[in-house]
Write a protein that binds this DNA or RNA. Sequence first.
RNA 1: CGGGGCGUAGUAUAGUGGUAGUAUACUUGCUUUGGGAGCAUGUGGUCCGAGUUCGAUUCUCGGCGCCCCGACCA
Length: 406
Amino acid sequence: MRQSQFFTKTRKEAPADEVSKNAQLLIRGGFINKEMSGVYDFLPLGLRVLNKIINIIRDEMNMIGGQEIFMSALQRKELWERTDRWSDEKVDNWFKTNLKDGAELGLAFTHEEPISNMLEQFVSSHKDLPFSVYQFQTKFRNETRAKSGIMRTREFIMKDLYSFTKDEVEHLEFYEKAKKAYLNIFKTVGLGDMTYITTASGGSFSEFSHEFQTLCDAGEDIIYITDENKKEALNKELGMDVATQEEKAVEIGNIFTLGTKFSDGYLTYKDEAGENKPVFMGSYGIGPARLMGTIVEVLSDKDGIVWPKSVAPFRAHILSLGQGENVLKLAEETYKTLVDKGVEVLFDDRDVRAGEKFADADLIGIPTRVVVSEKTIESNMFETKDRATGEVKSFSLDHLISELQR
RNA sequence: CGGGGCGUAGUAUAGUGGUAGUAUACUUGCUUUGGGAGCAUGUGGUCCGAGUUCGAUUCUCGGCGCCCCGACCA
């Protein structure tokens, strides 16, 4: 993609109304736009990152057998009344709306009720179990206080997976697989070393649950690391008195054992003996945007964002320096060659000074910067700089291609 | 939901009861070209409503919006 074609622009200064690092850098770089408090738009660069994250999650969900669907954001009141979750007293972050005739509808904050209702028509025998279903879908939560940029918003995409099993034994088997898949996801996006599993109470609708907490100053939770090797920690909300240091952390994922709370009397199956049993359920959530915000919080430096290769909007950033005819020609050829070879490249073909291109490249945070200038022509070698380590290297075109294809 | 802070140009900020200033961004021109260049040039602004006043961007009240701390957080 050519940077001269972007409708977005970078900014030198952070917006006055954003304090969080993730929002400041993402807005400065042109990844996101603030629509209102707790509501953000994803612009071309930001959407590329978000989609990378979504695809990493999707791959892992598919690998544990998850079947992808896409449910509606508008939800029926009746489904929520039968589990007693429609009342604002019970769930205080509802967004509700009305049909023209006055009928009330809910805007999804989660999907247990509609999904178990939808599945009633498909599940009737023990032979239909187990299976799991997931989606990337917009959730609305009427937070009294949105905060921390894209880490706690009122409208966001959530990956929610639901598992349907015959009983607790079968459930736990899947639950462990899901736990491993989650750890894989966080490792792939570059947060593995600083992410810990904590056990938590699970709230009023779950028997128990686990949270995935990433060490981060912008986090809202306090955890105690209990086993560094196993990446285990305790959440402070458990009220445990532990003799280890407190760490601030952000919850980037959670998995819940739901049991039969949402299925009892509705979503049932006939066992081998022909007896009706409620389906045993679990739910598993990740917010891709919160994950994106956490990556920025944890991995950025004073010059800007540092994207891990797995989620970077592009693999390489070509900067042409100067407006010399030969330089422009070589930069153009290099860009086309790399794209032909399957490398995702952002090409800074703008007619601006070197300093501005360097500063923007640092801010945007693409893993490898490739400079094309008079020096490149003289030496016939391409200078690269690693955004994360600052390491500068020189490559012939062939070696550059293979380096970027790795 | 409790407490605190704040709304001035696309962005970041200064200032004032009497025609609103700077930087940056943007237009145009010249120079420049390996770390956000220089000179010139032009465009663009006081959140909304009511009140006080001869006159309100400024003072008062209300509304709306934004941020922070806490509570809450399937």
